[in-house]
Design a protein around this nucleic acid. Sequence first.
RNA 1: GCCUGGGUAGUAUAGCCAGGUUAGUAUACCGGCCUGUCGAGCCGGUGACCCGGGUUCAAAUCCCGGCCCAGGCGCCA
Length: 449
Amino acid sequence: MTRLLTPRGLVRDVKRTHEIAEIPEEPGTTVRIAGFVENVKEVGRLVFVWVRDRSGIAQLTLRKAEAPEDLVRVAKSLNTHDVVSVVGVVPERREAKVGIELIPKEVEVLSRAERLPIDVTGAAATQLDTRLDWRPIDLRNPRNLAVFRIQQSLVRGMTEWLESRGFVQVFTPCIIGAPSESGAEMFEIDYFGKRAYLRQDPQLHRQLLMVAGFDRIYEVGPSWRAEPSHTPRHLCEHRGCAVELSYISDETDVMRVEEELFIAGLKRVLEERTRELEALGVELEVPRTPLPELRFPEIYEILSSMGKDIRYGDDLDRESERLLSQYVLEKYKSEAFFINRFPFAVKPFYVMRVDEDPTWARSIDLVYRGLEMSSGGQREHRYEKIVEQVRLKGMNPESVKWFTEFFRYGAPPHGGFNIGIERLTMAVVGASNIREVVLFPRAPERFMP
RNA sequence: GCCUGGGUAGUAUAGCCAGGUUAGUAUACCGGCCUGUCGAGCCGGUGACCCGGGUUCAAAUCCCGGCCCAGGCGCCA
C-alpha cells in the first residue's frame, strides 16, 4: 500500500484520503473519509448518515431503491458515534444544508459505539462534572476543539513573540527539595524516602537563571497547588507561561514586556481563530497599550469612593478586584490593567520593596476581564535585602539558604511574571468554569480520568 | 477550610414544603411509520428515587451521619 504525506501532513492511507473539509467540490470526485457517525435518519425512501471528523460534517445520502442492499443495511445499522470509513462520490447537485454531501459507495465500520453516557448535542445539556467523568467523549463536542485551538494560538502567539525577542526557552524542575515559597500549600511526594514537593511556581529557579546570566528566559509548564479551593477559577494543576528578564530599571519594564506578550497572544487568536471565536460566540478586542496601571495605596481611595473600604495595608479581596475592573473599564475603556505596589506584608520574601517607602512592593498583577491573569514584578537581587526580608517574614533562613546563597556572587537586577494559561483561555473564551478549558482538570475532588 | 443550595432512568429535570394508587416530562436508546432529512416529525417500548441509620402502619418526601456536586467567601495563576 503506497503511503504519502499530503502538504498538510496527513497520511493518505487506506482509511482516509481527505479530511471532510478538504473534499473537492468537483462532482464525480471519489474520496475516502473517516470519522464518527453523528446522526442516522431514515426518511421515506432515503437514508441519511452524518459523519464528522475534526474538520467538519459530511452527509451520506442513500436512495434505498438505487443503493446496493448491503450498503443500505449497514447504513441503517449505524449508531451515534460509531467510527466509520466511507468511500463516496461528490454528487452532481448538492442538497444538504449542513455539511458536504457524498453518495456512499462503501461503508466500513471500524468500531461500534454503545449509547453515549452523556449528551453531546446540547438537547439535554449535561452538567460539567458529569461531562468531566466522561471527558474523552465530551471532548468530541466540536466546541471543545475550538477552545483548545484558541488556547494553542494564545500560547503560540506568546512563545513566538518571546522567541523573536531573544528569550531562551528553559525547563526548570517540577520536583523541589524545600517548601521555600510562602503562600499556597504544596503537594508532598516521596523522593527515595525523603520528603520532596511539587513546585507551586517555577519562580525561584527562574531567578537562579538570572543569577546564571541567562538574561531573558521563558518557560511553559505546570505548577501544583494543594489548596482545597472550591471555585470556578482554581485548579490543583495548572500551566503557566513564565518569563524572567535581567537588567531592568524597575518593575515598569516588566509591565511593558508582559503587556506586549499578552497582546501578542490575543492578536494571534484573532488572526488564526476567527471561525472558532464565532463558533463559541466570543467577541475579542485587543486592548490598547500601555495598559492602565493602578497603584497602592491610591487603590484604597478608589475603592473607598466606590463604597468599598479595605483597611490600609490589607490585600484586595475578590470584590475589590471586580470593582477595580469596573473602574478601569469606565475610566480607561480597557478590559485589562495592572495593579502595582502591593503591600509587602501580603507578598513573599523575594519581592523587591520600594526603597523610599518599604511598605510597598514592586509587585504587579495583570487583571483581564475581571480575572487575575498573573502575578509578577521586580525581584530583590541584593543579598543583604533578601536575607533581611526572609527574617521579616519570620522564615527560617536555613530553609531558603539553597536559594539565597547564590545572591552573594553577583546578581543582575531582574523581574518577571507567570501568566496562567488556563486563566487566560478562560477569560478569552468566556468560560464560566476554568475546568472547561482544561483537557483533564485536576481539582480537590478530581484526579481522574 | 467556611457559608448556602442540591443529589430522582444514559442525560437533563418535575414531584419533596403539607409522607399514602402504575414516580410525570424532555432527550438518548430500541421497534414501527413517513418521497430530501438537516434541532426532522408521528406512534409504541425499555429505563430512575446517592449511601448508611432513624421516625412511622407507610419515606423520593421528615430527622441524623457520610460521600459527591453547584454557587459564594478565603487562598491564589
